[in-house]
Simulated scan of single mutants.
Amino acid sequence: MGFAAVYVARDMFFPIMIGLLVALTFSPVVRSCARVGIPTSVAAVAIIFGAGMALSLGFYLLSGPVSEIVADVPAMGAELREKLRGVLASIEDVKDASEKVEELASGSDGAAVVTVKQPGLLAFAAGSIANFMGLTALGLIFALFILASGDLFYDKLVDAFRTSSDKRRAKNTARDIERQISRYFLTITIINAGLGLCVGLAMYLIGLPNPMLWGGLAFALNFLPFVGSLFGAVLVAAFGVLSFDTLGMGLLPAVVYALLTSIEAQFVTPTILGKRLNMNTVSVFLTVIIWSWLWSVPGALMAVPFLVMLKVICDNVPSMAVLGNFLGAKAVPENNA
């Protein structure tokens, strides 16, 4: 029932979640500005304005190459089919065989089948992006009000508890959530920027056109757990096959892309984030599935920060210790010598 209600009202909850995550991320920055004499409201406006400008700049820089690619999609599709003709022929044979089996099983009598034409992919994508940007703008405005209010949110949260121990635990939990979310976003953003730089440089050295585009996409897609690196490798593989004469050389950019993302996921991120933010892979996967069901790609982007928030709450509330233990990574067994 609860999931159904959240799903129906997902467009209302999305900017709220965006606003909370942004506010938690930048609250330490606003508080640091207040310590040096910068008013909270001024710092909040500067931060949210800067975040909005950064997002707009990123979309603007990538819009040119993406628009060119979208315009050439029909021609690229035909060329890709021609280069992969042998592979596609085998797939078509399997598809034809399965369709014949379905016809025999259904006992088709030649009756006309009515199909409903769905909106075009580009129209759907444009509408989704416009909706996402509108809801994100609302989320940033909500974050602005939270940041500009200073410690009012924390004071109200603490006042909701009766005993001094509960008040102290609530304040410590809120501060811990704030620190961990800020650390997570800052660290992941720096790591993804480094990955994007490495991917862009690698694509440039290999000779794949638009290396800046692939670096930018690697930066953005790596915020998506599990599927981001896979989707990026598939895109790079498709354009690699189109850009080079031989299939082996065409797949080389995808191999390099997958290698770089694997090094980042298996070694760089766990080492930098440390054990405290190291999550159980099963819990991350389940959270990504649920949040993707709620909010599609934006939900997948927010899944891990939400899990970090839940993990911090579990670590600070004794009654939720079992759930916190499940969410965390596998503990290193102690040496019982």
Rank of each mutant, 00 (worst) to 15 (best):
I206P: 01
F145Y: 06
Q180R: 11
L213R: 00
L205W: 00
D159S: 11
S165P: 04
D166G: 07
N210G: 07
L195R: 00
R162V: 14
G150R: 07
N192W: 02
L157A: 01
I206E: 06
Q180G: 08
L147R: 02
D159P: 09
A174W: 10
F153M: 15
T173E: 05
A174L: 10
S164F: 05
R168G: 09
I146R: 03
E178P: 01
D159C: 04
G150T: 04
L186I: 11
M212Q: 14
G207I: 03
F153P: 05
Q180M: 14
D151W: 11
T189C: 06
M203I: 13
S149E: 04
L201T: 12
L208H: 10
P211Q: 06
G194K: 06
I141H: 03
R179K: 15
I146V: 15
I190G: 04
M203S: 07
G150E: 10
C198A: 15
P211I: 03
L152F: 11
M212G: 10
K167W: 01
P209R: 08
I206A: 05
L147E: 04
A193F: 12
P209E: 12
D151H: 13
N192I: 03
L147P: 00
L205T: 12
L205Y: 07
I188D: 10
I206H: 01
I177F: 10
Y154Q: 13
G216L: 11
I146Q: 08
G150V: 09
L208Q: 04
S149L: 04
D176K: 13
G200W: 09
P211W: 03
V158R: 12
A202H: 09
A160K: 14
Y184Q: 00
L197F: 13
L144I: 08
F153G: 08
R162D: 13
V158S: 01
L197P: 02
F185V: 10
E178I: 08
L213E: 01
A170H: 07
Y154N: 14
A148G: 06
I188L: 08
M212R: 15
I146P: 05
T189L: 07
G196S: 04
W214N: 02
D155L: 11
N172C: 04
L195P: 05
G216H: 03
L147A: 08
L186Q: 13
S182L: 08
L157D: 00
R179V: 13
R169E: 05
L197R: 08
F145S: 13
F142E: 14
Y154W: 06
I206R: 04
L195I: 14
L195W: 02
M212V: 15
G207R: 02
E178M: 14
I181Q: 01
R175T: 15
L201P: 10
R169W: 04
F145C: 12
I146T: 06
N172K: 15
S165H: 12
S182K: 12
I206S: 08
K156G: 14
K171N: 09
R175C: 11
D166R: 06
I206K: 00
C198E: 01
L213F: 01
Q180H: 12
A148S: 11
R169G: 02
M212A: 14
Q180L: 15
D166A: 03
L186F: 12
V158Q: 06
F145T: 09
G194R: 02
I177Q: 07
F142S: 15
I190H: 02
L213M: 02
